[in-house]
Amino acid sequence: MSETVLEVENLTVDIPIASGMLHPVRGISFSVQKGETLCIVGESGCGKSLTSLAMMGLLPKTAQRRTDKLLFRGEEIGDLPERQMSKLRGGAMSMIFQEPMTSLNPAYTIGDQLMEAFRRHVTRDRAVARDRAVYLLEKVGISSAASRLSQYPHQLSGGLRQRVMIAMALMCEPELIIADEPTTALDVTIQAQILHLLAELQDEFDMGLILITHDLGVVARIADKVQVMYAGRTVEEGPVNAIFEEPAHPYTQGLLRCIPVPGKTKRGERLGSVPGIVPNLVGDLEGCMFRNRCPHATAECDTAGEQLAKLSSGDHAHACIRSLADRAAIDASSTKAAE
């Protein structure tokens, strides 16, 4: 019944820099179905934004991308020439960026920008394009849509601009939307509205949605599937309930302890933290990349692989060499030793 829109297998991005080869994305695999929301969550430097750019073929010139599979609607797009890729990008696959002001051209009206891709990909007919633009602006909750067409981006507030961006992404009836931190620059109230809108539209048009964010609150509310990234690898993946209720990887567990949750964490109580910083991803890398920040790390982790291992409940997998029970046992013995 469900149809896979995008399938990525073993995506790797390498960037040569002065001090050696940087490996910001080191073998990521995932897939998105129609009508499904995948959230890629991670902190700055984990490679989540480069992953999204790699899917769209928008990486910087020096970066090298390798994939075993990059299937869009079942067709390999990894080796498409730039010309066809750009056709795909404006059409069946579209992107929403964090900062709407920098992705809208200040020199053109909202209407021109909305209609541009549509007239390039779908039909030259201006009237049809205009009708669709007005229809979508109303759809994303912009009042007096027809008169907005002649306005310039700077005349709109941040929330409105992000709505315009969403309308623009929807113009050519995409089957997949990739949204990179779409609400980070917005106020909380507007953020809720925009996410609500995205979820609604996704339902209505049966699109695949890949949402990239660092905000666990956003992930919990909107995702179907979650992919937790750390240092260029997926450290945990699974259905949203499993991730939040039974986080398995020490990093996911640590992240969830870091955020204050009204009603759960007590006022003034100390929050958990993940000490240390993200490792340098230049050169040859060996072992688990999280070991320098992991409270359970032992000597084995220096050489451990980072393969995802399935957990009991179906799709839920994590990339730690030890199971939850093992870690608890190790911790218990080490506290005993300390005593």
Binding site: R257, G272, S273, P275, G276, I277, P295, H296, D331
Partner: peptide, 19 residues
């Protein structure tokens, strides 16, 4: 939360360093 490892003291030194 008796696990000490998860709540390192923020007084005293922190480990992260940018070289």
């Amino acid at each position: 939360m008796t696990d000490i490892a998860h709540t390192p003291r923020s007084f005293g030194q922190i480990v992260d360093e940018v070289l």
